[in-house]
């Protein structure tokens, strides 16, 4: 139950991060295509239902909520396809220029992840506390661990791409491409191991990764200020500078990881 609500929270943080990020990025893209409003709508929806879920103590899947999450997941998947298509159709196809400056692959993936996490939460909620749920044919804790492992490594890959674009000009830019992959590996290990034992190191590392998400916002704010005109020129620098809302994706995913950990560790007590 607790885990399910934590997942709602994870989905919420992730949705919020994507909502802000896609608002900024699609504004930059001048909403050239009406479909560019979609991610705003669905991530707002995901955010809304997650807030609802966080307060909901009942141990049943909420049909509407779950529906909303599935919709979010599907939209994310569609967005992924659309962004990939956008990159491919640019002159030169898949090359660094287009990966750097074309439609980002990571953002819609994060929407999909938000949906997936929320929906997983709904399933766990339904079965808890007696029947073990399954995700991807794995017991729920391990399945969730696999999902977050994937999410964290994906987000880390995105930040590698963007920090590479920024030439790692500040040594701190290496943090999000070194810490989270370890968290991801630890989660992958959990997905592999039988459930039921304690994992204090993993917990610690997830906490660190979650914190990195907040710290990242501060670093990005500093980055925006280093551009000419600093915050005074926010209309340009918010768009061109490092994205403020992106790093909390790590926080959202780490929260999901912690939820997975809770389920896995809880097994011991049953």
């Amino acid at each position: 139950m607790q885990a399910a609500r934590e997942l709602n929270r994870a989905a919420a943080v992730l949705a919020l991060s994507v909502l802000m990020d896609s608002a900024i990025e699609h504004y930059r893209g001048s909403f050239k295509n009406k479909a560019m409003f979609t991610p705003l709508a669905v991530s707002a929806l995901a955010l809304g239902v997650s807030a609802h879920g966080m307060r909901d103590q009942r141990a049943v899947t909420h049909g509407l909520r779950n529906g909303a999450y599935i919709l979010t997941g599907l939209t994310g998947a569609a967005g992924l396809a659309f962004h990939t298509y956008n990159v491919m159709k640019r002159t030169g196809g898949i090359n660094w220029q287009n990966l750097f400056y074309g439609a980002p692959i990571g953002a819609p993936a994060a929407i999909a992840m938000s949906g997936a996490l929320g929906s997983a939460g709904e399933r766990i909620r339904h079965y808890a506390p007696f029947t073990p749920a399954h995700i991807w044919g794995l017991p729920s804790g391990r399945g969730l661990a696999a999902l977050t492992s994937l999410g964290i490594i994906g987000t880390s890959a995105e930040s590698f791409l963007l920090h590479f674009r920024g030439a790692f000009h500040n040594p701190c830019m290496y943090l999000p491409v070194t810490l989270p992959p370890i968290a991801s590996a630890l989660m992958a290990r959990l997905a592999w191991l039988p459930e039921g034992s304690r994992h204090p190191w993993t917990r610690l590392w997830l906490g660190l990764t979650a914190f990195l998400g907040f710290g990242g916002v501060a670093f990005h704010a500093y980055g925006v200020n280093r551009a000419l005109g600093g915050w005074r020129n926010w209309r340009q620098n918010m768009l061109d500078g490092p994205p403020l809302p992106a790093p909390p994706a790590f926080t959202g995913l780490s929260l999901a990881g912690l939820a997975a950990l809770r389920i896995i560790e809880a097994k011991r007590l049953v």
């Binding site: 030169g92 674009r165 920024g166 030439a167 000009h169 340009q236």
Partner: peptide, 21 residues
């Protein structure tokens, strides 16, 4: 073939140089 032009203007901050606007 074509490529992006190598330019002497920074695409990320460098010291007191702010990135190209």
């Amino acid at each position: 073939g074509w490529t992006e032009t190598p330019l002497a203007t920074v695409s990320a901050p460098r010291g007191l140089s702010s990135p190209c606007m």
